[in-house]
């Protein structure tokens, strides 16, 4: 029942349009139920003061059972924030996008979580293995199995790119 995903996304979109986004987050586009863009900005004092980034959500037919593929947009002159858990290709190593995803989370909840992830950053730097990862990274960040280092503070120590077979299996089961 792909319509479950569509109905839920429609509902979330309606909520955003009626109630508005949380502070610092704005909907850029949501033309369909597959690709949404938001701008995200950290309010108050932080490393990223005054910087606006764009978040991209990609949904498959299994949403919300299956987590959305979330990343920063790095095209059209947009940049990914420099952050220990954000790769320069926009991929984000955050446990709520992987192991700790729950259907109770919504698009705005994800946005707010990532916003606070940026806000709590002490030092602007890329992940240690940025270059190596970006060279081999798949297009869809969900195909990367990140290893999270701690519960609330996801850190990327190591990751493994799933093989084609592995990702196919995951896609079927998710």
């Amino acid at each position: 029942m792909a319509s479950i995903a569509a109905r839920r996304l429609a509902k979330e979109l309606k909520e955003i349009q009626t109630e508005g986004c949380p502070v610092g987050i704005n909907l850029v586009k949501a033309d369909n139920f597959e690709l949404w863009w938001f701008t995200i900005e950290v309010m108050g004092e932080s490393q990223y003061k005054g910087e606006v980034y764009t978040l991209q959500f990609r949904f498959d037919g299994q949403y919300p059972i299956s987590s959305p593929a979330v990343q920063f947009v790095v095209t059209e002159g947009r940049q990914a924030p420099i952050h220990p858990h954000v790769y320069s290709n926009g991929h984000i190593c955050a446990s709520i996008l992987g192991n700790e995803w729950s259907p109770v989370l919504s698009v705005t909840a994800v946005c707010v979580t990532l916003q606070s992830m940026l806000a709590s950053c002490k030092k602007k730097e890329r992940p240690i293995d940025n270059d190596r990862y970006v060279r081999n990274a798949p297009d869809n960040p969900k195909k990367t199995q990140f290893h999270y280092d701690g519960k609330c503070c996801p850190a990327l120590i190591a990751y493994s790119i799933m093989t084609d077979m592995g990702s196919a299996i995951t896609d079927d089961t998710v």
């Binding site: 299994q62 059972i65 700790e100 729950s102 199995q145 995951t170 089961t173 998710v174």
Partner: peptide
């Protein structure tokens, strides 16, 4: 669905 994934995910679900 979660049980098809990692053990941690299954636990969370």
């Amino acid at each position: 669905s979660a049980q098809g994934g990692s053990a941690e995910r299954a636990q969370n679900a």
